[in-house]
């Protein structure tokens, strides 16, 4: 893999080993998040389809809460997949500058970007947790679910985003941050 080529070029140190170990654990993490995302999306499709049927067939009970459940399922699925997108560089980005940089410059810029990104994800995770506490007194309009639930998913996803940022920062310091999409084509087994 791309990472290994770079890794062998640099002196193997403890930091490299840590990052290598992280990349070996990653498939397990992905199995959980992607597995959950697939289940959530499937639920969204099924619930919406049933709600349409329920509206058309008077004998079936009303499922007007379906819209809320569908929205929460899909938002949760999306949030859980974002950290992986960050790791694989599949989030949309402008590459005019990075394309023109040599490797050292690229690694330095990547490190800077991770520090900046970490500010957003850190705030999101920390204050997301605070929001869970503040808004737990509030309930969703249709399912009557505590609003703590969606905000908790957001806080967890933000923590995972922060983790990816820290790993990428370490990679950049070691000169092994990847350019362009990484392994996005490899199917994730669920």
């Amino acid at each position: 893999m791309h990472d290994d080529d770079v890794a062998t070029a640099a002196p193997p140190g403890r930091a490299h080993l840590l990052i290598d170990r992280y990349h070996r654990i990653v498939p397990v993490l992905d199995r959980v998040t992607i597995g959950a995302a697939v289940a959530l999306v499937t639920t969204g499709v099924a619930v919406t389809a049933l709600a349409v049927a329920a509206r058309k067939i008077p004998a079936l009970p009303s499922m007007s809460w379906a819209s809320e459940l569908t929205t929460f399922c899909l938002v949760a699925a999306v949030l859980l997949v974002v950290p992986q997108g960050l790791r694989q560089n599949t989030q949309m980005a402008v590459t005019v500058l990075t394309d023109r940089l040599g490797d050292r410059g690229f690694q330095a810029l990547t490190a800077v970007n991770q520090v900046l990104s970490a500010c957003l994800f850190g705030v999101l995770a920390w204050f997301g947790t605070e929001t869970v506490l503040i808004q737990q007194a509030s309930h969703t309009p249709q399912l009557g679910l505590s609003m703590a639930v969606p905000y908790l998913v957001l806080a967890v996803a933000a923590a995972l985003m922060l983790l990816e940022t820290v790993v990428r920062f370490a990679e950049a310091l070691l000169g092994r941050a990847p350019r362009g999409p990484v392994g996005a084509d490899t199917p994730v087994e669920v």
């Binding site: 992607i34 995302a37 697939v38 999306v41 499937t42 899909l74 938002v75 699925a77 999306v78 949030l79 997949v81 974002v82 992986q84 997108g85 599949t90 989030q91 949309m92 996005a184 199917p187 994730v188 087994e189 669920v190």
Partner: peptide
């Protein structure tokens, strides 16, 4: 497996837009 692959790929694309 192929179906979950399709759902996964679609969710990745959606995540890029919705985020």
């Amino acid at each position: 497996r192929e179906l979950t692959g399709v759902v996964t790929a679609a969710t990745r694309t959606s995540a890029a837009i919705l985020f």
